[in-house]
């Protein structure tokens, strides 16, 4: 199968005696948008932390873009092509938009070790291109993040993933703290990514949003994957019964 971008086999994470994630077998195809749902503490964020190198799994394999990876840090995951929009944004409040987009991977006019001269013009132009690609609306590029609304901040964090050649985008509850209009703007960006054929893993509690945006829903419960549902073959009621434990997918029987 060459159209698989990401696969995990038996991915497991224990924190001491706590089994936060057990035997997660997960497949993501190229261009596919998948939502991960589940109650608090179901293992969604733990799963993402293993994929993005924030933590290292106790057991199991991560196969990304045809090769097995063990990411020692978020930077390694990013270099491999996994761009993550973390729940806690990871932006520097006192820097402007281009500086945040290129944080840690600046463009230079010429290299001189730590005193390499920044190519501000190139970074500004690349920022405008990335914002246009994701249809992000920002009134002033040179404004610091501190002076922006929550939605604008989230858009900058998402545009970061578009400024570089990413092969997979992961978003951890991107609209959790946003208002109605701002949520709509972020959702539009996600649709733009879909049209561009960028695969996406979306963690969300918002049922409407999930059914609006993704192709497939994977449900976590108590550290295990309990359902893998195509959007056309399920509905909100159905997903809720998997989340709460009223139902378990046939292929996962006996798991939880």
């Amino acid at each position: 199968m060459t159209d698989i971008i990401l696969e995990t086999r038996g991915l497991t994470k224990h924190y001491g005696g706590v089994h936060a994630l057990s035997d997660a077998n997960f497949v993501l195809h190229k261009g596919e948008h998948v939502a991960i749902m589940g109650d608090n503490g179901a293992g969604k964020s733990t799963f993402v932390r293993q994929l993005t190198g924030v933590e290292q799994p106790t057991r199991g394999k991560i196969i990304f873009d045809g090769a097995e990876h063990l990411f020692a840090s978020p930077i390694e995951a990013r270099e491999a092509g996994i761009e993550t929009v973390f729940q806690n944004l990871a932006l520097a409040d006192d820097l402007d938009v281009p500086s945040n987009l290129f944080l840690g991977r600046e463009k230079f006019l010429f290299k001189l070790g730590p005193f390499s001269i920044l190519d501000k013009k190139a970074m500004r132009e690349a920022t405008i291109a990335a914002l246009e690609k994701t249809a992000v609306k920002i009134p002033n590029l040179m404004n610091t993040i501190r002076n922006m609304s929550g939605g604008q901040r989230q858009c900058v964090a998402i545009a970061r993933t578009a400024a570089f050649k990413s092969k997979l985008v992961i978003m951890d509850e991107p609209t959790a703290a946003l208002g109605v209009q701002e949520t709509a703007q972020v959702e539009n960006i996600i649709r733009t990514l879909k049209e561009a054929g960028e695969p996406l893993i979306l963690i969300s509690h918002n049922m409407r949003q999930v059914f609006d945006l993704v192709d497939r829903v994977v449900v976590f419960r108590r550290g295990r994957i309990v359902a893998n549902l195509r959007k056309e073959e399920t509905n909100g009621q159905d997903v809720v019964s998997y989340i709460t434990g009223a139902k378990t997918g046939s292929e996962y029987e006996g798991a939880a």
Binding site: P74, I75, R78, F86, N88, L89, A90, L91, A92, D93, D94, L95, L103, G104, R105
Partner: peptide, 12 residues
């Protein structure tokens, strides 16, 4: 100085 954790995660 602005966000040490974000800087670390960004590869600085």
């Amino acid at each position: 100085g602005s966000n040490e954790q974000a800087s670390r995660m960004s590869g600085i």
